[in-house]
């Protein structure tokens, strides 16, 4: 067992974990932050995306011990009080989810994408950057719309058939 200290959503959290514990297990199991999901066993689906030191990473593919000393933001850390984060609000506004399973990872990926590209985001870049986030329900279209809207970027002119 190893003692870890991770700042999660602004609060310093301590725990004692087996070295093989994944970050996502620590977040969900030890801290009860079950907003971060696990959708695959192969590091491909992105349901588990959180930010570690400001960057989107797959928390199913990182050990909790690797994250010790780092700052982690999960979906629970985005809203301020009752006010949704702009990306969360855009997903609601544009109906960017159906079952919602992929949504926390989609939103964390989207926030990271918008941080890097800002309003210069375009549809092609959004679709390309969603490479590591799989949605079983929506066909992605409204997710792309929500992300462009939250970025303050222009919406696609024509709507491609999915």
């Amino acid at each position: 067992m190893t003692d870890v200290t991770i700042t999660v959503n602004g609060r310093e959290m301590k725990g004692s974990v087996e070295d093989r514990t994944l970050l996502v297990q620590f977040l969900r199991g030890n801290l009860g932050l079950t907003g971060t999901h696990v959708g695959c066993d192969t590091s491909q689906c992105g349901a588990c995306v959180v930010h570690v030191d400001g960057k989107a990473v797959k928390s199913c593919t990182m050990l909790a011990v690797q994250a010790s000393g780092s700052s982690v933001t999960t979906i629970e850390g985005l809203a301020s009080g009752a006010d949704l984060h702009p990306v969360q609000a855009a997903f609601r506004e544009h109906h960017g989810l159906q079952c919602g399973y992929c949504t926390p990872g989609m939103i964390m990926t989207a926030v990271d994408m918008i941080q890097r590209h800002g309003s210069s985001l375009d549809e092609e870049t959004v679709r390309e950057e969603l490479d590591g986030n799989i949605c079983r329900c929506t066909g992605y279209h409204n997710i792309v719309k929500a992300i462009l809207s939250a970025a303050g970027a222009s919406q696609p002119q024509s709507i491609a058939a999915e």
Binding site: G46, K55, V57, K58, M62, E129, G132
Partner: peptide
Amino acid sequence: IGDPAVRHM
């Protein structure tokens, strides 16, 4: 290579 999260690590 991979996706943004893979490229970050």
